[in-house]
């Protein structure tokens, strides 16, 4: 009768070790793809928390952008490039903004939740594209980061340092979210999606629960954006804040599936590989391939890539 053993933590730990070891031998281009994938995965992890509650945000590029621009501005204006400072600062900015906007957005559901998130993100986009000091549509570059005071001279070294740091951050974030999902509050997702009245009558505030999830997702998206800015050494509104990026984040969330905290990482890598190869082979049709993939997932694989893996490895999906 007892649920099968939860393999998430050992699985993540094995994954971490494999990724760390592989980091030493992986080619540069692959490290690049992994860095970008993992930074997106962090934002997707936050969206997954919301999605389990039935909420889809079409504006999380807002927090992605806030995180990215925080890192970039710290570097540009204050000359701060220490990852241990810039990345927490980005998370702080994103979660603070999320905390205040959360008081408004927690009253909304369904399409209204999606539209209000979209409006917030487009406000930021509207400001950024018209702000000369921040490079308008071109954006500006982010200085080479340092970690614990050590800055790498070579771009390649820099990449691998970032990769190791990112593996650590991703592991930590996944563990924390996993722990959260096992708590009563984390478990309220399906309950809220199914029946808000009952949750209230059991004595818990739905608004409060959604607010917590929203701030978490904002912090994670801010974290992801910060790392994306560092890996690309560049920020600009169209690849970080525009609505198409929010759409992309939702897409990867669906592609990954809600089954496990590991799913966003796998899903992001799959997405980045599809995109990279599609762009290489058919530069004018990569969006077509991405779009078709998304449709295929919606129709044939509603549990995302994770459910496919779970099926292959013979485990029941999520054991819910």
């Amino acid at each position: 009768m007892t649920a099968s053993r939860d393999w998430t933590i050992p699985g993540l730990t094995i994954g971490l070790v494999v990724m760390l070891v592989a980091g030493v031998v992986l080619p540069d281009w692959l490290l690049n793809i992994l860095n970008i994938s993992f930074s997106r995965a962090l934002a997707v992890l936050g969206l997954m928390v919301l999605w389990r509650t039935g909420l889809i945000s079409f504006g999380h590029a807002f927090y992605y952008g806030l995180g990215a621009y925080t890192v970039a501005i710290l570097g540009k204006e204050l000359g701060v490039s220490e990852i241990l400072v810039t990345v927490p600062a980005a998370m702080l900015v994103a979660s603070t903004v999320g905390f205040f906007l959360g008081f408004i957005i927690r009253r909304y559901r369904d399409i209204f939740f999606a539209m209000l998130s979209l409006a917030f993100s487009m406000v930021l986009y509207g400001i950024l594209v018209k702000t000369e000091a921040l490079g308008s549509t071109d954006g500006f570059s982010v200085p080479t980061p340092s970690f614990l005071g050590f800055g790498a001279e070579e771009a390649a070294d820099n990449k691998i340092v970032l990769y190791f740091v990112l593996c650590g951050i991703g592991y930590g974030a996944a563990l924390l979210v996993h722990r959260y999902l096992q708590s009563t509050l984390g478990n309220l997702s399906t309950a809220i999606r199914d029946n808000e009245i009952r949750v209230e009558y059991l004595g818990y505030s739905v608004a409060h629960a959604i607010h917590v999830k929203y701030v978490m997702s904002a912090a994670l998206a801010g974290l992801g954006g910060a790392i994306l800015a560092i890996s690309l050494s560049q920020v600009d509104p169209d690849s970080m804040v525009n609505w198409t990026i929010s759409g992309e984040l939702v897409f990867v969330t669906i592609l990954s599936g809600p089954g496990s905290v590991a799913a966003p990482f796998i899903g992001s890598v799959v997405f980045e590989l599809i995109r990279t190869y599609a762009f290489e082979w058919l530069p004018h049709a990569w969006q077509l391939i991405v779009g078709a993939t998304l449709l295929a997932i919606i129709f044939f694989l509603p549990g995302g890539v994770w459910s496919l893996l779970a099926r292959i490895f013979g485990r029941k999906e999520g054991e819910r």
Binding site: G247, V250, F251, Q287, V290, G291, L294, L295, I298
Partner: peptide
């Protein structure tokens, strides 16, 4: 989301 895919 499906119409977003169609858009792409």
């Amino acid at each position: 989301l499906a119409t977003f895919a169609t858009f792409l």
